[in-house]
Design a protein around this nucleic acid. Structure first.
Lengths: 227, 227
DNA sequence: CGCCAAATCTTTCTCTTGTAAAGATTATCA
DNA sequence: TGATAATCTTTACAAGAGAAAGATTTGGCG
């Protein structure tokens, strides 16, 4: 699959924020079907968007450097000028996922009641995972375990958790950290099990996923009934 | 990576439980360094063990058909007589993982107190994941979402959950199912986050993983403090 | 303005990997 | 014993990651 050796000593991609804007679409006289400039002008961003597209279309398995490059309309070697490797690109995709997750949580968890806010966070977490399982798997895949290799990913991931932590502290100042870990673990596990279809075909009747989430999250917060 | 097309129409592997036992190690006069019989005799099992070895040695990323075949000492095409594809083999590996997990949980969760039993299950779950992260990732990877394609995997996975379900029902007959889902989700999420290193470098002091597990699991069972 | 260096993109190559096809070897059973 | 099927090997192929080198721009800098 991937040659074992890591980023070699070849010329480094020199990842520089391209200053040039997208070239004006129309040429001088538009002689044919868009001559397409040699320099893309904004390839890095385009690649990330293309990666999102491919990820949603093909699933986590079908995401390929070549496929992404094709989706972005460049040669399969072009990405190497913006990313050190496929993993590096995927890490950037995951990073965006964490940023979006954080944004979504911040945006929707607005309730005044601190407990309700935690419930909303759990709901968003789970529904985000369900909305794009492939991206969720990528975000929490083996890349995350190597986040020290990808500092921006590390920052984004920890920033998302920071939001959970803050909400937990607001709910319980003394045990905020523990509460945050419990909530996060629960929401994360439920998300994973749901998108893995681990519950499918289970010998018990389950409500719809979003209902189930709130129901279980409440139980975690309020404490399970100790019969 | 893998040519898109699925299992083709080629002759089917005719997976039959080989009746012949392992050939006696010593030949007639042992002329050289083990002539090695043409027929392995027990290749399917050997491949699964080799896969476990490779999985533990190389991680989830480095497990390849060819590497496993080499580890088992056969040609890289031999596995196709016992597994329809790489995924099929990995599904079998995952299946064994679920069987072992179930066994481990059944073996250690012996406490008379039903709550304590749930705590022990959580501990086993998490410690199993931490003991062999690659296998855990494989078990709950994208293959699980396709478990209908691999019936034995489906059976093994559901059997493992069945044990959790039983323990939860013992603790709370009325809400056993909900409790089982909560416990499972929590343990699963915590396992994932731990092996992903999601907690590494977090701005809070955490106890050792096994201590943390019990501590948080207690909180889930007893209910978090609603300040 | 003109030119050189660096950045960006392409084509071409190599190596690894999953899988197919066909041939060799051995076991099974009538 | 001899045909048939199962098991294993060798060979072949296509797809993917990444390296190497060449083509095309862009951007300074005189």
């Amino acid at each position: 699959m991937k040659p074992v050796k890591a980023a070699s000593t070849a010329r480094k991609p020199a990842i520089k924020t391209s200053k040039t804007a997208l070239p004006a679409k129309a040429g001088k006289q538009a002689p044919g079907p868009e001559p397409k400039p040699y320099h893309h002008g904004n390839l890095r961003e385009s690649l990330l968007e293309a990666a999102d597209t491919v990820l949603a279309r093909e699933g986590a398995l079908g995401i390929t450097l070549r496929e992404v490059a094709k989706e972005a309309g460049v040669s399969h070697a072009a990405p190497y000028h913006h990313f050190a490797s496929l993993d590096d690109m995927l890490a950037a995709v995951a990073e965006r996922g964490f940023l979006r997750l954080r944004e979504a949580m911040a945006e929707r968890a607005q309730a005044v009641d601190t407990g309700e806010r935690l419930l909303q966070i759990a709901e968003i977490y789970v529904s985000s995972a369900r909305a794009n399982p492939a991206q969720f798997r990528l975000m929490f895949g083996p890349l995350l375990a190597r986040k020290t290799e990808f500092p921006p990913l590390k920052v984004a991931a920890e920033s998302a958790f920071g939001l959970v932590h803050a909400a937990a502290r607001a709910h319980d100042a003394k045990n905020g950290s523990e509460l945050a870990l419990v909530c996060w673990s629960f929401a994360h596990g439920l998300s994973n099990l749901l998108i893995d279809g681990a519950f499918d075909g289970l010998p018990m009747e389950l409500p719809a996923a979003n209902v189930l989430t709130r129901q279980l999250a409440q139980r975690v917060l309020m404490g399970v009934v100790v019969a």
